[in-house]
Structures are given as structure tokens and as C-alpha cells.
Amino acid sequence: MTSRFTIIRDTAAAAAIPKGSVVAMGNFDGVHLGHRAVIEAALKMSRSHGKPAFAVTFEPHPRKFFSPNTPQFRLTDETNKLRLLAGTGLAGAVVMTFDAARAGTTAQDFIHHDLIARLGVSGIAVGYDFHFGKGRVGSPALLVSEAAQLGIEVDVQPYIDIDERPVSSSAIRMALEEGQISDATAMLGGPWFVTGEVIHGEKRGRDLGYPTANIRLSKECSLRHGIYAVRVGRGQGKDHRRFDGVASFGRRPTFDNGAPLLEVFLFDFTGDLYGTTLDVAFIGFIREELIFDSVEALIRQMDDDAAVARTMLAAAPDAFPKLGNID
């Protein structure tokens, strides 16, 4: 039986935070391989110290605070970020509200008030590019300098690259925008996924012989429009079920060219999914979105897409995001 993943927010009393904990700090958008190196360093440190390890992260993402009117394509919303963190072996997460007060906190105050006085940390793990405090003047070097004087261990992880391409959340976003699913998967250490509630659509898929589960993604999602091979998760724990499928993300140019919608066809499934929450993991990009001259041509293409998706999924590792329970 796994231990409960504890989420601690700004409103929690200081007594709720286990003193002497080790923390992995970062925004952790996507919880990619670079983030996982920081988390593993914190876990290793926590075993050495005999203390629990927590993530320290910030919500909303600082980019959203500083540029509220600029679309921000997040790899993971807050809930899915926490679910991924809960699947790493961490004891919990400290979620700090990023607001005007946080943006105005000096780096020294963040170290001495938040990390030392409030959290009482015994160790800190960060990535090489982690910056914090007013004006982003806080750096890993400052953490090492300040914390070392207080006997607090600091581990700074170097960048990770794949084929000489540094792993970063921005590089993963770019890969998804280009439909480069294999590149995104490699940098994440597993498939990128989205979560959403199945909503009613126009029922066109049913008439075409491909009834779909329709999910409205964030307006800021800039995943390339097209057809994908996907794996779909439903439920948690002993109730978790997995399905293979093929999905379309886009505007349906043959019909209405409307707002972007994720439409997922689950292979070998019958039943009602309306109101159900699904996790959809993207395994491979099949083709771009096209306009068809006839419904018959569209159905022939959908048959081909389903066959390609089955082949892709059969050849792909049986991977799915490792998600923890945060309920």
C-alpha cells in the first residue's frame, strides 16, 4: 500500500509541514527528464537524511502572472502536474501561490523565510537554470552560498540533453506544436497526455461508424492539428482501465471549421462515456488535418488512420504516464 501524497498550500499551518524535509524545487511543467533528475536527487538526499522529500512548486505558472494576456501552452495543468509528481515517490508537494507578494519577495527572504523558517528544510535539489526571487536574481549559486552557511545540503543538477538537444519544457512544447510526438515522448520520459471530461458533440462520428469521445482542451493548447495514435486511461487504482485508439485534434474543416476539439475513437469499446473523465496519451502522429470532398472519402481515410494507429500502438512500448492519486 502506497503512502498518501500530501499537498500543502500557503494557507496550511507551518505545523503541517514535516520539519527537516528535503525539497526539489521548480515549476515542473510536464515533469520531464530534467525535472525527474532533480526529483531523484532529492529522493536520494532524503534517504540519506532519513527525512521525507517534497516538491516545491508555484501556481499559477510565473509566466502567467507576468504576462496574463499572453497565451501560455502548459504541458500539464496544476492537477496533472501534481498527479505526475505523486507518481515519482515524493511524499508530497508544497504549492506556493505566485502572486504580487511572491514576485516581490527577495531571493534572500525566500531562502530564509520560506525555505528555512517555514519549511525547515534540511536539503534542497534544483536544476542548473532555476532562478527565483524578485527580478529572478536568486540562482543555484546563491542557494549553495546561503544554505551552506546553515549546514543545508544543496544539489544542483546539470542540464540533460538528447542527441545534444537540451531537454526543457519549451523544447517539448515546440515538439508538440510540430507534431513531433516521439521527440516529446523522449524528453518527457513517457507520453504526453491530457485529461478532460467527455462532452456531447454533433454525433457525426457515430453516423460515420466512428463514435468518438469528445474533449475540449484548453484554449491555450497549441498541439499540432491532426490525427494521432493514442492510449486512453479511465478510472484510478483497481478501477483503472486502458484502451487503444485513434484521435483527431483540430477544427473539422470538412464540416464546420469550428473551435479545436479532441475527438477520440476507442478501439473495441462499446458504452456511454458522457461525463467520464479520460486521460489521453499521445503515442504517434499519423497525418495533418485534411479537407475531404465527400463523406465516403473521409470514411476511407478514417479506416486507413485506424489501421495505422493500430500498427503504431502495437510497435510502441506499453507506456502510459505514471500517475499518483492526489484525492
Score class of each variant (00 low, 15 high):
S46Y: 01
S46F: 00
R47N: 05
R47H: 04
R47Y: 01
R47E: 12
S48N: 00
S48I: 11
S48R: 13
H49I: 02
H49Q: 10
H49G: 00
G50V: 05
G50W: 09
G50I: 09
G50H: 09
G50L: 07
G50D: 05
G50P: 00
K51G: 03
P52V: 10
F54S: 01
F54T: 02
F54P: 00
A55F: 06
A55G: 11
A55N: 04
V56K: 06
T57Q: 08
T57V: 11
E59P: 09
E59H: 13
E59K: 06
P60Y: 05
H61Q: 05
H61I: 09
P62L: 02
P62V: 09
R63V: 10
R63G: 07
K64C: 10
K64M: 14
F65K: 06
F65V: 09
F65S: 04
F65M: 08
F66C: 03
F66S: 05
F66L: 14
F66M: 12
S67N: 15
S67R: 14
P68G: 08
P68T: 12
P68I: 14
N69T: 12
T70S: 14
T70Q: 13
P71R: 13
P71W: 09
Q72R: 05
Q72G: 01
F73N: 11
R74W: 05
R74C: 14
R74P: 03
L75C: 09
T76C: 08
T76S: 15
T76G: 03
D77N: 15
T79I: 09
T79N: 04
T79Q: 10
N80R: 10
N80Q: 12
N80C: 11
N80A: 02
K81T: 04
K81C: 04
L82F: 06
L82Q: 00
L82R: 00
R83N: 01
R83F: 02
L84E: 14
L85A: 03
L85M: 07
T88N: 04
T88H: 02
T88S: 14
T88R: 10
G89V: 10
G89A: 08
L90G: 01
L90N: 01
L90F: 05
A91I: 03
G92V: 04
V94Q: 11
V94R: 15
V94F: 15
V94N: 10
V94K: 15
V95R: 03
M96L: 13
M96I: 15
T97A: 05
T97W: 00
T97E: 00
F98N: 05
F98H: 07
D99R: 04
D99N: 15
A100W: 03
A100P: 09
A100V: 08
A101P: 00
A101C: 06
R102N: 00
R102H: 12
R102F: 13
T105V: 08
T105P: 05
T105C: 12
T105N: 07
T106Q: 11
A107Y: 10
A107H: 11
A107M: 10
Q108S: 08
Q108G: 00
Q108D: 13
D109V: 02
D109W: 01
D109Q: 14
F110A: 07
I111V: 12
I111C: 09
I111S: 03
